[in-house]
Computed example of a mutant assay.
Amino acid sequence: MEILRYTAFSADPSGGNPAGVVLDATGADDASMQRVAAEVGYSETAFLLPRGGGDFDVRYFSPQAEVAFCGHATIATAVAYARRHGAGRLRLHTKAGLVEVGTAVDGDTVTATLTSVAPRTAPLADADLAELLAVLGWSAADLDPALPPRVAYAGVWHPVVAAASRERLADLSYDLDALAALMARHGWTTVDLVWRESATVFHARNPFPPGGVYDDPATGAAAAAFGGYLRELGLVAAPATVTVHQGHDMGRPSLLTVAIPAGTGGIDVTGTGVSLA
């Protein structure tokens, strides 16, 4: 397998979230893909299996396990494919469902937009929220009452917890094993911690213990789920576009643009990408 390395949601190699990309994993079995993902060492590696005509099966592996959907690896894959084959549209058949991705090339800049599966939200039980806050070292007073806690989905599940201040979001300290155990019980992929700067500008952090990652610098799947959360709870007037800043607290700034259409369809998440070769 030819293994490419790209960062997503940044045009600067020092920013964004790195991902491994295999544009043709034909014939690779699960063990081989898991081994490659562990050797690459990024939070996710995406493996494309061509069906023909712009359709692909895609598998996503962290160094520790397979996940059903990964947004930043999808953006990285689309950017790598556009660099190799030109701009266009891809139809990615993920374990979460069909995700379409469009790309555009403007000189040295490649931009990709994914459209998620239909999002949905679910209540976050009081006991589960209390346990999550305890593991994070947060209190109820640290929360923004205007953005109620929920569990949100756009391919995988993420609890959404909003901080009342930027300082609270910046001060992230938790027991990785304890949070991993809590998330495993509930099937959560990352925890989407957010702070609202303005009506359409947010900052986020995403602990990802199931993948062995303390803090993810850019999380497209969580951004899509968050867009669905904002729409379903009426926290933005759809159609709307919001921006999510992530990775700044860990020195890998990332920018995710989230387009939220009216209705119940998928959420668009846009970002740039660049090779790390």
Rank of each mutant, 00 (worst) to 15 (best):
G265F: 12
H248L: 00
R150E: 05
V258Q: 05
A262L: 01
A184H: 00
V101P: 09
H158C: 10
T45V: 03
F56P: 08
V105A: 15
T115S: 14
R35F: 06
T200P: 09
A125F: 13
Y81W: 14
A82E: 14
A38K: 15
A73K: 12
E197H: 05
P253M: 00
L136Y: 15
L92V: 07
G107N: 06
L4Y: 04
W195T: 10
G266H: 06
T113Y: 08
V117C: 06
D144W: 05
L143N: 03
G102S: 13
Y214A: 15
G273V: 04
G227S: 12
F61A: 09
A163D: 06
F226A: 00
G16M: 00
A38E: 10
V40M: 13
P210I: 07
A225P: 09
A127T: 15
T243S: 11
V58Q: 02
A146M: 03
Q246A: 06
Q64H: 08
G52E: 02
A122I: 00
S14C: 14
A221E: 05
T272F: 13
V161C: 09
D24I: 10
V161T: 02
G228N: 04
A199N: 09
Q34D: 00
G20D: 04
L230C: 14
G227F: 05
G251W: 12
A152C: 12
V117M: 07
G71M: 07
T103R: 05
A65I: 15
V101L: 08
G227V: 09
V117R: 11
L129E: 10
T111R: 14
R166P: 03
S275F: 08
P148R: 05
D268W: 03
G97C: 01
A140Y: 00
V67F: 14
I75Y: 02
S254G: 02
G155R: 03
L48T: 07
P239V: 14
G263M: 06
T264G: 11
A162V: 01
G265A: 15
W138G: 02
V105S: 06
A19Q: 08
L256K: 01
A122T: 08
T121L: 11
R89C: 05
G228L: 03
G251C: 01
E39V: 11
R35T: 15
A37F: 05
T94G: 06
E131V: 02
A164M: 03
D142C: 01
A87V: 12
Y174A: 07
Q34I: 07
H203D: 07
E197K: 09
